[in-house]
Every structure is written in structure tokens, then in C-alpha cells.
């Protein structure tokens, strides 16, 4: 069912349709996929807007990508996650369209669609088989919400091109099923090919194999990340630290750079 009345922003809370400053960046359209149980779509749309781009809501029942230049699959509990996190969402028409575009050959020289899956979105991408591995319950078995230090290990993706290899950032982590697992062969392959994009720093919060917080597909356009960069984009409402040291209370904005990186990559491409 195509329904154009589906909006990502909350008119009750904010007007997310403000004019962005840099018109070149503003022309970059970033789709934000929403399932019925998605929770962080407003945050993801806000992050895209604060980075200067234009967020475009994509409803899971549709299959029209609306000419977006990139897609974010945000966090939440897409379908209640009662079977396995992301399992049912992965079969939605919109995810079929995203998967096709992310794997496209780009015959006319166009590169495949950049996709970022955050938290539950990462789980959806693994269930869609765009990314290897899977997530199981945290080793301590509890939901954990905390500010998390990460090392950016690969800058060979559009989402991380603006970082220095090994640079550290701080973004919120919040999940119950965040323990990344994959078989030994896959892990070895990910490590050898430099496809571990983010690794937990300052302690592994959930038992993830090799401390992996985020991975990329072989081409680097699809990235999954367990912690939440979209919650570290605005001073006053983010974590209280950053990769480069302490900041004023709740004023860490390291996450914004992931969205900026994408926009600048797309503009300069």
C-alpha cells in the first residue's frame, strides 16, 4: 500500500522540514525506513537534517525508493522482534528494494546505494543477508543503555570516509540483543578484508566477537552499527563525552560526523 501521508517527523514535536544551509548538501536525499515498531526514525531524520541533508521517509510496505541517494535503517523493534530481531522486517517490500539497490552493479557508472543499519536496522540488514553475522542476547542478558566509546577501524566506507583510521568516538549504546556473532571463517574474512568498521573501545559491553560494533559488506557501501550515532548529533541531547575528551553535559556530537561523512562523499562523488 503506497501511502504518502506517512511522515517521519512529528508535527506535534518539531518541524523537521527546515531549509538546510548548504544547498548542495541539502540536495542529497537520505531515505529513512520506518517499520511499525521502528523507534529512532525521528532521531535518524534529525541527524540527516542537522548534517545538512534532506531526510525522506520510506514506509516499509512501499517498494519505491523515491530516488534517494542513501538509506538509513534506524533502530527500534521493527515488528516487536518476537521471532528474531529483524527477522520479519527483512521480508518487507521496502527492504527488498533496498537490498536490490545496495547490491546493484551500477552499470551506468553509478555506485551502489549506501545503506546504514543502526541497532535493529543492523539486525534487519543481517537478516536480509546484506551483511554477515547475526546478533544474539548480550552476554550479561540485560538491556544496557550507556555512552559507548568506539574505534573507527575502516574509513573505506562512505559513512566513515571523514574519519582518521583508528579515531575514537563516543555514541550511545542501547540494546538487549547486541552481541555480534559470526563463524570463525567469517570473522577471519572480515578482519582480513578490513571490513570491521567499528570496534568497541574501553571494554566490550556485550560479548561481541572480536569486540565488533559495526561491519561493512565487501564493497563497503552497506554498513551496520550496533550503537546509535543518531543520538549524538545535537549539543544538549547527546552523550557527555566525545572521542576527543570530555564535553559539556550531554553535548557529545561525534555521531553527526557519520552523517556528514556520507553527505560529503555523495556531493564530491
Amino acid at each position: 500500500m503506497a501511502d504518502s501521508s506517512v511522515t517521519l517527523e512529528t508535527p506535534l514535536i518539531a518541524d523537521l522540514g527546515q531549509e538546510a544551509a548548504d544547498s548542495r548538501l541539502a540536495r542529497v536525499r537520505v531515505g529513512v525506513v520506518a517499520f511499525p515498531g521502528t523507534l529512532d526514525e525521528r532521531d535518524a531524520a534529525r541527524a540527516v537534517r542537522l548534517a545538512g541533508g534532506t531526510p525522506v521517509p520510506l514506509w516499509y510496505k512501499d517498494s519505491d525508493l523515491q530516488d534517494v541517494d542513501a538509506v538509513v535503517v534506524p533502530g527500534g523493534f521493527s515488528y516487536g522482534d518476537y521471532l528474531r530481531a529483524g527477522a520479519i522486517a527483512a521480508k518487507a517490500p521496502m527492504m527488498t528494494a533496498v537490498a536490490r539497490a545496495a547490491q546493484s552493479r551500477g552499470t551506468s557508472g553509478s555506485s551502489p546505494l549506501p545503506v546504514l543499519g543502526i541497532c535493529n536496522g543492523f539486525q534487519v540488514l543481517t537478516e536480509t543477508h546484506l551483511l554477515p553475522g547475526s546478533m544474539i542476547k548480550n552476554d550479561h542478558l540485560k538491556f544496557l543503555c550507556r555512552d559507548q566509546r568506539l574505534a573507527v577501524e575502516s574509513t573505506a566506507t562512505p559513512w566513515t570516509a571523514a574519519f582518521e583510521p583508528g579515531e575514537e568516538i563516543v555514541v550511545p549504546l542501547k540494546n538487549q540483543d547486541g552481541q555480534y556473532v559470526a563463524d570463525e571463517g567469517t570473522l577471519a574474512e572480515l578482519e582480513a578484508e578490513g571490513r570491521v568498521v567499528f570496534r568497541y573501545a574501553g571494554g566490550n559491553p556485550n560479548g561481541s566477537r572480536n569486540g565488533i560494533a559495526g561491519v561493512a559488506n565487501a564493497r563497503g557501501n552497506v554498513v551496520g552499527l550496533m550503537p546509535h550515532p543518531e543520538h549524538a548529533v545535537e549539543p544538549g541531547f547527546g552523550p557527555s563525552s566525545s572521542g576527543s575528551g570530555p564535553v559539556a553535559m550531554r553535548s557529545g556530537t561525534d555521531g553527526l560526523r557519520i552523517f556528514s561523512s556520507l553527505l560529503h562523499q555523495l556531493v564530491s562523488a
Binding site: I13, D40, K174
Partner: peptide, 9 residues
């Protein structure tokens, strides 16, 4: 720490 305090931004 078992509650999400960030969602909605």
C-alpha cells in the same frame, strides 16, 4: 542503565 533515555532525542 536498563532503560533507554536517549530515544526521541
Amino acid at each position: 542503565d536498563q532503560y533507554d533515555r536517549y530515544v526521541q532525542g
